[in-house]
Design a binder for these strands. Structure first.
Lengths: 109, 109
DNA sequence: CTATTTTATCGTAATATTGCAATATAATTA
DNA sequence: TAATTATATTGCAATATTACGATAAAATAG
Protein backbone atom coordinates (compact mmCIF):
# COMPACT_ATOMS: atom_id res chain seq x y z
CA UNK A 1 0.00 0.00 0.00
CA UNK A 2 1.04 3.58 0.40
CA UNK A 3 0.03 4.55 -3.10
CA UNK A 4 -2.65 7.16 -3.64
CA UNK A 5 -5.79 5.74 -5.28
CA UNK A 6 -6.19 8.45 -7.89
CA UNK A 7 -8.39 6.26 -10.07
CA UNK A 8 -11.20 6.56 -7.54
CA UNK A 9 -11.45 10.32 -7.66
CA UNK A 10 -12.58 12.73 -10.36
CA UNK A 11 -10.14 14.27 -12.84
CA UNK A 12 -10.84 17.65 -11.31
CA UNK A 13 -10.16 16.46 -7.79
CA UNK A 14 -6.88 14.88 -8.83
CA UNK A 15 -5.86 17.99 -10.74
CA UNK A 16 -6.68 20.26 -7.83
CA UNK A 17 -4.76 18.04 -5.42
CA UNK A 18 -1.71 18.05 -7.72
CA UNK A 19 -1.74 21.83 -8.01
CA UNK A 20 -2.04 22.23 -4.25
CA UNK A 21 0.61 19.60 -3.66
CA UNK A 22 3.01 21.74 -5.67
CA UNK A 23 2.47 24.49 -3.11
CA UNK A 24 2.47 22.18 -0.11
CA UNK A 25 6.07 22.93 0.82
CA UNK A 26 7.39 26.11 2.44
CA UNK A 27 10.28 26.35 -0.02
CA UNK A 28 7.87 26.37 -2.95
CA UNK A 29 5.59 28.86 -1.22
CA UNK A 30 8.67 31.01 -0.65
CA UNK A 31 9.72 30.71 -4.30
CA UNK A 32 6.27 31.74 -5.49
CA UNK A 33 6.16 34.71 -3.13
CA UNK A 34 9.64 35.77 -4.16
CA UNK A 35 8.77 35.58 -7.86
CA UNK A 36 5.63 37.58 -7.16
CA UNK A 37 7.45 40.21 -5.15
CA UNK A 38 10.35 40.78 -7.51
CA UNK A 39 9.37 43.23 -10.17
CA UNK A 40 11.71 42.02 -12.85
CA UNK A 41 11.69 38.43 -13.92
CA UNK A 42 14.27 36.70 -11.80
CA UNK A 43 16.31 33.69 -12.82
CA UNK A 44 18.40 31.44 -10.65
CA UNK A 45 19.24 33.93 -7.96
CA UNK A 46 16.42 32.24 -6.14
CA UNK A 47 19.31 30.02 -5.12
CA UNK A 48 20.94 33.02 -3.44
CA UNK A 49 17.68 34.05 -1.84
CA UNK A 50 16.77 30.71 -0.27
CA UNK A 51 18.87 28.60 2.11
CA UNK A 52 18.77 25.52 -0.07
CA UNK A 53 21.27 24.07 -2.51
CA UNK A 54 21.07 24.66 -6.24
CA UNK A 55 19.94 21.12 -7.07
CA UNK A 56 17.19 21.32 -4.46
CA UNK A 57 15.92 24.65 -5.78
CA UNK A 58 16.04 23.27 -9.31
CA UNK A 59 13.92 20.34 -8.22
CA UNK A 60 11.34 22.58 -6.55
CA UNK A 61 11.21 24.79 -9.65
CA UNK A 62 10.55 21.72 -11.76
CA UNK A 63 7.61 20.73 -9.60
CA UNK A 64 6.14 24.22 -9.74
CA UNK A 65 6.55 24.23 -13.51
CA UNK A 66 4.94 20.80 -13.91
CA UNK A 67 1.99 22.03 -11.90
CA UNK A 68 1.59 25.01 -14.23
CA UNK A 69 2.33 27.53 -11.50
CA UNK A 70 5.45 29.02 -13.07
CA UNK A 71 7.00 29.11 -16.52
CA UNK A 72 10.60 29.39 -17.56
CA UNK A 73 12.23 30.85 -20.64
CA UNK A 74 15.85 30.45 -21.63
CA UNK A 75 17.82 33.69 -21.46
CA UNK A 76 21.40 33.15 -22.43
CA UNK A 77 23.00 30.73 -20.03
CA UNK A 78 20.41 31.61 -17.43
CA UNK A 79 16.73 30.74 -17.25
CA UNK A 80 14.04 33.24 -16.48
CA UNK A 81 11.29 31.93 -14.22
CA UNK A 82 8.05 33.79 -13.77
CA UNK A 83 4.71 33.03 -12.22
CA UNK A 84 2.12 31.56 -14.57
CA UNK A 85 -0.90 33.71 -13.91
CA UNK A 86 -3.15 30.98 -15.24
CA UNK A 87 -2.25 28.58 -12.46
CA UNK A 88 -2.84 31.18 -9.78
CA UNK A 89 -6.12 32.17 -11.40
CA UNK A 90 -7.29 28.56 -11.25
CA UNK A 91 -6.53 28.24 -7.55
CA UNK A 92 -8.04 31.62 -6.83
CA UNK A 93 -11.19 30.61 -8.67
CA UNK A 94 -11.36 27.27 -6.87
CA UNK A 95 -11.35 28.78 -3.40
CA UNK A 96 -13.64 31.64 -4.35
CA UNK A 97 -16.20 29.20 -5.71
CA UNK A 98 -15.79 26.98 -2.71
CA UNK A 99 -16.40 29.87 -0.35
CA UNK A 100 -19.43 31.00 -2.32
CA UNK A 101 -20.99 27.56 -2.27
CA UNK A 102 -20.24 27.40 1.43
CA UNK A 103 -22.15 30.56 2.24
CA UNK A 104 -25.19 29.39 0.27
CA UNK A 105 -25.67 26.39 2.55
CA UNK A 106 -25.77 26.84 6.29
CA UNK A 107 -23.18 24.95 8.28
CA UNK A 108 -24.40 23.29 11.44
CA UNK A 109 -21.30 23.05 13.66
CA UNK B 1 18.35 14.37 4.73
CA UNK B 2 14.79 14.22 3.56
CA UNK B 3 13.52 16.51 6.28
CA UNK B 4 11.93 19.82 5.38
CA UNK B 5 13.92 22.82 6.61
CA UNK B 6 11.00 24.68 8.11
CA UNK B 7 13.28 26.77 10.32
CA UNK B 8 14.53 28.66 7.28
CA UNK B 9 11.14 29.94 6.18
CA UNK B 10 8.74 32.43 7.70
CA UNK B 11 5.96 31.37 10.06
CA UNK B 12 3.44 32.45 7.46
CA UNK B 13 5.08 30.44 4.71
CA UNK B 14 5.17 27.34 6.87
CA UNK B 15 1.57 27.80 7.92
CA UNK B 16 0.41 28.29 4.35
CA UNK B 17 2.31 25.22 3.22
CA UNK B 18 0.76 23.13 6.00
CA UNK B 19 -2.74 24.25 5.12
CA UNK B 20 -2.19 23.49 1.44
CA UNK B 21 -0.57 20.18 2.28
CA UNK B 22 -3.77 19.18 4.02
CA UNK B 23 -5.56 19.61 0.69
CA UNK B 24 -2.79 18.09 -1.39
CA UNK B 25 -4.49 14.73 -1.70
CA UNK B 26 -7.49 13.86 -3.86
CA UNK B 27 -9.23 12.03 -1.01
CA UNK B 28 -9.06 15.13 1.15
CA UNK B 29 -10.20 17.36 -1.70
CA UNK B 30 -13.09 14.95 -2.20
CA UNK B 31 -13.95 15.02 1.51
CA UNK B 32 -13.99 18.82 1.53
CA UNK B 33 -16.17 18.99 -1.58
CA UNK B 34 -18.52 16.40 -0.16
CA UNK B 35 -18.88 18.28 3.13
CA UNK B 36 -19.48 21.46 1.19
CA UNK B 37 -22.08 19.90 -1.06
CA UNK B 38 -24.10 18.12 1.61
CA UNK B 39 -26.55 20.51 3.15
CA UNK B 40 -26.85 18.88 6.52
CA UNK B 41 -23.82 18.19 8.61
CA UNK B 42 -22.68 14.74 7.71
CA UNK B 43 -20.80 12.41 9.99
CA UNK B 44 -19.01 9.22 9.12
CA UNK B 45 -20.97 8.30 6.04
CA UNK B 46 -18.04 9.86 4.25
CA UNK B 47 -16.77 6.32 4.60
CA UNK B 48 -19.70 5.11 2.48
CA UNK B 49 -19.19 7.88 -0.03
CA UNK B 50 -15.48 7.36 -0.67
CA UNK B 51 -13.74 4.16 -1.77
CA UNK B 52 -11.35 4.07 1.16
CA UNK B 53 -11.41 2.15 4.39
CA UNK B 54 -12.70 3.61 7.62
CA UNK B 55 -9.25 3.96 9.22
CA UNK B 56 -7.94 5.74 6.14
CA UNK B 57 -10.83 8.19 6.09
CA UNK B 58 -10.39 8.78 9.80
CA UNK B 59 -6.74 9.59 9.22
CA UNK B 60 -7.56 12.06 6.43
CA UNK B 61 -10.21 13.70 8.60
CA UNK B 62 -7.64 14.13 11.34
CA UNK B 63 -5.28 15.91 8.98
CA UNK B 64 -8.00 18.22 7.73
CA UNK B 65 -8.96 18.98 11.31
CA UNK B 66 -5.36 19.66 12.36
CA UNK B 67 -5.05 22.08 9.48
CA UNK B 68 -8.15 23.95 10.64
CA UNK B 69 -10.12 23.12 7.52
CA UNK B 70 -12.88 21.13 9.22
CA UNK B 71 -14.25 20.80 12.72
CA UNK B 72 -15.95 17.90 14.41
CA UNK B 73 -18.50 17.73 17.18
CA UNK B 74 -19.56 14.61 19.02
CA UNK B 75 -23.15 13.62 18.32
CA UNK B 76 -24.08 10.47 20.16
CA UNK B 77 -21.91 7.62 19.00
CA UNK B 78 -21.25 9.45 15.76
CA UNK B 79 -19.18 12.53 15.03
CA UNK B 80 -20.39 15.42 12.98
CA UNK B 81 -17.77 16.91 10.69
CA UNK B 82 -18.28 20.24 8.96
CA UNK B 83 -16.12 22.63 7.05
CA UNK B 84 -14.40 25.30 9.10
CA UNK B 85 -15.19 28.45 7.18
CA UNK B 86 -12.20 30.17 8.74
CA UNK B 87 -9.71 27.88 7.07
CA UNK B 88 -11.31 28.29 3.67
CA UNK B 89 -11.45 32.04 4.16
CA UNK B 90 -7.73 32.10 4.85
CA UNK B 91 -6.88 30.20 1.69
CA UNK B 92 -9.30 32.27 -0.33
CA UNK B 93 -7.69 35.43 0.99
CA UNK B 94 -4.19 34.14 0.30
CA UNK B 95 -4.82 33.50 -3.37
CA UNK B 96 -6.87 36.64 -3.85
CA UNK B 97 -4.06 38.73 -2.42
CA UNK B 98 -1.52 36.85 -4.44
CA UNK B 99 -3.44 37.48 -7.64
CA UNK B 100 -3.86 41.15 -6.79
CA UNK B 101 -0.17 41.64 -6.16
CA UNK B 102 0.52 39.78 -9.37
CA UNK B 103 -1.54 42.13 -11.48
CA UNK B 104 0.13 45.17 -9.96
CA UNK B 105 3.53 44.12 -11.24
CA UNK B 106 4.00 43.23 -14.86
CA UNK B 107 5.27 39.74 -15.56
CA UNK B 108 7.91 39.45 -18.23
CA UNK B 109 7.51 35.92 -19.58
C1' DC C 1 -23.24 -4.43 33.01
C1' DT C 2 -23.26 -6.18 28.07
C1' DA C 3 -23.88 -5.60 23.37
C1' DT C 4 -23.93 -2.49 19.57
C1' DT C 5 -22.49 1.31 16.84
C1' DT C 6 -19.24 4.62 15.47
C1' DT C 7 -14.82 6.52 15.33
C1' DA C 8 -9.83 6.55 16.60
C1' DT C 9 -5.32 4.51 17.15
C1' DC C 10 -1.60 1.11 16.44
C1' DG C 11 1.40 -1.39 13.68
C1' DT C 12 3.29 -2.15 9.41
C1' DA C 13 4.22 -2.55 4.36
C1' DA C 14 4.60 0.04 0.10
C1' DT C 15 5.66 4.17 -1.86
C1' DA C 16 6.80 9.18 -2.18
C1' DT C 17 9.31 13.29 -0.81
C1' DT C 18 13.26 16.04 0.58
C1' DG C 19 17.92 17.40 0.26
C1' DC C 20 22.47 17.39 -1.51
C1' DA C 21 27.08 15.90 -3.59
C1' DA C 22 28.61 14.67 -7.87
C1' DT C 23 28.08 15.12 -12.44
C1' DA C 24 25.99 16.26 -16.88
C1' DT C 25 24.06 19.55 -20.11
C1' DA C 26 23.41 24.01 -22.52
C1' DA C 27 24.62 28.57 -23.81
C1' DT C 28 28.03 32.05 -24.07
C1' DT C 29 32.67 33.95 -24.23
C1' DA C 30 37.53 34.11 -25.06
C1' DT D 1 37.79 24.69 -29.56
C1' DA D 2 38.31 25.43 -24.48
C1' DA D 3 36.84 27.73 -20.53
C1' DT D 4 33.07 29.74 -18.04
C1' DT D 5 28.50 30.29 -16.29
C1' DA D 6 23.93 28.70 -15.21
C1' DT D 7 20.84 25.08 -14.70
C1' DA D 8 19.39 20.14 -14.81
C1' DT D 9 19.88 15.29 -13.75
C1' DT D 10 21.47 11.24 -11.23
C1' DG D 11 21.98 8.55 -7.23
C1' DC D 12 21.26 7.90 -2.65
C1' DA D 13 20.20 8.39 2.38
C1' DA D 14 16.80 10.11 5.66
C1' DT D 15 12.24 10.86 6.44
C1' DA D 16 7.22 11.30 5.45
C1' DT D 17 2.91 9.71 3.50
C1' DT D 18 -0.65 6.43 2.26
C1' DA D 19 -3.46 2.59 3.11
C1' DC D 20 -5.49 -0.96 5.79
C1' DG D 21 -6.19 -4.98 9.16
C1' DA D 22 -6.54 -5.44 13.89
C1' DT D 23 -7.87 -3.49 17.85
C1' DA D 24 -9.07 0.08 21.21
C1' DA D 25 -12.10 3.69 22.89
C1' DA D 26 -16.46 6.29 23.50
C1' DA D 27 -21.32 6.72 23.49
C1' DT D 28 -25.79 4.72 23.56
C1' DA D 29 -29.32 0.96 23.90
C1' DG D 30 -31.12 -2.94 26.00
Amino acid sequence: MGVTKTEHFTEAQNATALQLKALAHPARVAIMEYLCEVNSCICGDIVNELPLSQPTISQHLKELKNAGLIKGTVEGTAICYCIDENGIAQLQSYFNQFATRLHDKKQCC
